[in-house]
Amino acid sequence: MGKIFQKPEALADVDTHYCPGCTHGIIHRLVAEVIDELDVRGRTVGIAPVGCAVLAYNYFTFDFQEAAHGRAPAMATGIKRVRPDLMVFTYQGDGDLASIGMSEIVHAANRGEKFTTIFVNNAVYGMTGGQMAPTTMPDQITTTSPAGRDTDEVGMPIKVSELLAALQTPAYIARQTVIRAKYIRKAKQAIKKAFTYQLEGKCFSLVEIVSTCPTNWGMTPIDSIKWAEDTLLPYYQLGEYKTPNGAG
């Protein structure tokens, strides 16, 4: 960790609407740092999802488009196909990507679209008010699983990185987290790798980031970090699931 710490240029100097302790802010900053380090701000287009990060377009200092729920990978496909010189990334949550947008992400990944997806997995719908997501843990209480997720009724949580890594085409699939400083360096490395592969013209890259949602989990930010570490990380194991040279 360096001794100097400042807001990256690619991050707008504004307050976000995110709840206290929400890890979106950290992930935004890491993306912005990588964009600064690769010096691609002037040719980057981000795609905001529907969900808590829908207003992400206000928090970066480069071009942005805003998608419908789950459709960001299709939009990124459209942009990247007609303007391959642009750096394109989607920023999606787990309701957006793993539920309503599962078709779009699977097909974009499988076609090997040359964009990057930042997939924020906090095991719950945020913006709509804490409903059950495809990534919600067994027995996890949400507003639409008040007795806890019943896996007999709705199945087990989807492991998106493992699922997408089963496809032959994608270049890079990794899962990291930002819940503690010791993980953040690896998360940033993964984001930087994903963007670098895109810059090199390699096909689809995705970084899943295990995150917290103190508000909808009904916990303090500190307790959320502990819960994520104890409950999410054993199930959503960190690591590289696919690299351009073979499995991670």
Binding site: I47, Q65, A67, A68, R71, A72, A74, M75, A76, T77, G78, I79, R81, V82, S103, E104, H107
Partner: peptide
């Protein structure tokens, strides 16, 4: 559905 968003993005 996906096509309509490819159009939107492009």
């Amino acid at each position: 559905v996906a096509v309509s968003y490819m159009l939107y993005g492009a």
